[in-house]
Amino acid sequence: MIQFDSKELSSSELEGLNAHFQERIDAEEKIEPKDWMPEKYRKNLIRQISQHAHSEVIGMQPEGNWITRAPTLHRKAVLLAKVQDEAGHGLYLYSSAETMGITREELIESLHDGSAKYAQIFNYPTLSWADMGALGWLVDGAAIVNQVSLQRTSYGPYARSMVRICKEESFHQRQGYHILMTLMEGSAEQKAMAQDAVNRFWWPSLMMFGPHDAASAHSAQSMKWKVKRQTNDELRQKFVDQSVEQAKAIGLTLPDPDLVWNEERGHFDFGEIDWAEFDRVVSGSGHCNRERVAHHRRAHDEGSWVRDAICAYEEKKRSREVA
């Protein structure tokens, strides 16, 4: 791969490349791996894609927590397939990030040392079977709203993995909703279990879209580069609007007294997110922050001898072939 070293370019050359790059973006052309791109664009994308990839992979844990306890064999198969899909999605995303010249090992390292983030919602614990419903319906629902928008992102490999991911995720939200629907048709205890799960996961789901546009550090530049196609607040509104009807249809109440239809705006108004809570979880005080990273690190470390073994085996095989 040719490495474009911006330092060796004169400032007028750099300006020309930048202008050409932005023209391409404005014309809705995709940026592909070997194209010249501003270093900041590359960094910004690696940050976003890796955060997305880590979220998929860390997101396996709260649901993986219930695979061995799923209450029917059908639910067990569905959940297992779903969590496996998350692993697949993490893999697609790591692959897209790797096209920008960073290795998966480096990405994992920054997850372990805390410099890379993942969706804070996965720092919440899953305490009942109904949480599998709430995660699928709300968390995957929110993720899909975001990912549908990202299918049009400007970086080709990222956009293509989003297309693939969206296609596969369509069942994720439905299976979650179906879990809740079944609970809401069940006993009083089951209904309470479902409502409790929604109470706990509703607000964190809204937080998934990130800070308000005005407060978002990366938003404006990401929009200009078309890395992001819709703003945090636009996407959040879309999610709220679609969730209200779905909740009502199965008798669930969304835990927000300020949630009310606004005829003028053509959208639902909703209450203010507790950003102090958001900051608290992001900065390490969620129930599972330490556990999530430790789990990943443990699996990675325990797998180290396996990865060594296959490399060594391949090495021996090659030298036998040479001899």
Binding site: V57, M60, K76, L80, V83, Q84, A87, L91, G303, V306
Partner: peptide, 18 residues
Amino acid sequence: SEWCSNGPFLEEDIALTN
């Protein structure tokens, strides 16, 4: 199924889950 999210690397995690 206990291996899901515990595999030595992602590809193998997915394969074992299959």
